[in-house]
Simulated scan of single mutants.
Amino acid sequence: MFKKDASWKKYSDIIDLPHHVSTKHPHMSSEDRAAQFSPFAALTGHEAAIKETARITDEFVEPDADKKQELDEELQMIRMALADNKTAKVQMIFFKPDGKKSGGSYETITGNIKKIDEYNGLIVFDDKTTVKIEKVIDILEV
């Protein structure tokens, strides 16, 4: 195993000593020891950051004055229905701002409106979904 040359003689005093066994730390298994030398991802999260940057968002397009008037009339009809304890089942298209970057996406929700919160400018659905009134693009009765 060792060549018997001059370098070998430097270790002759310890070469036959028994292997040290720690009393403080348990013996490490071969799998755990091998895991120390396995490759690791030095740039953890880098790939996710690249995907997030590449993700495309839409920009909010403000409805024109005619469309805003139409939406106001629809919301007024919904307010009257809610005041009469009637249900207001609608399909609503709205803009949902992205939480991580500028822009967002246009989404559609279908459901019963529970209330219109004028103070906070929110439309609240039965399933507790909220939509900002200013982000509504279209309202269709179902």
Score class of each variant (00 low, 15 high):
68 K>M: 10
122 L>I: 01
49 A>T: 00
112 N>A: 09
122 L>K: 11
54 A>E: 12
118 E>G: 06
92 M>V: 14
83 A>I: 06
14 I>G: 06
91 Q>H: 05
104 G>H: 10
8 W>R: 13
64 D>R: 08
26 P>T: 06
52 E>H: 03
64 D>T: 05
128 K>D: 11
37 F>L: 15
46 H>S: 08
131 V>T: 00
101 K>E: 14
113 I>N: 08
83 A>E: 11
94 F>M: 04
53 T>W: 02
123 I>F: 06
57 T>C: 12
113 I>H: 03
67 K>G: 04
9 K>I: 14
102 S>W: 03
10 K>Y: 02
52 E>A: 13
53 T>I: 00
29 S>R: 02
75 L>M: 15
9 K>E: 14
121 G>T: 05
113 I>W: 04
28 M>F: 03
87 T>H: 10
22 S>I: 09
43 L>G: 07
21 V>L: 04
34 A>W: 01
112 N>Y: 13
137 I>T: 08
55 R>G: 01
86 K>D: 14
123 I>V: 15
49 A>V: 00
115 K>D: 13
116 I>Y: 04
85 N>I: 07
105 S>P: 03
21 V>P: 00
28 M>S: 10
46 H>R: 12
110 T>H: 03
84 D>N: 14
67 K>V: 15
102 S>K: 14
29 S>T: 10
111 G>A: 04
126 D>F: 02
72 D>C: 03
109 I>H: 09
43 L>V: 12
49 A>D: 04
40 F>R: 08
110 T>Q: 08
74 E>G: 04
120 N>W: 08
31 E>D: 10
87 T>C: 05
136 V>W: 00
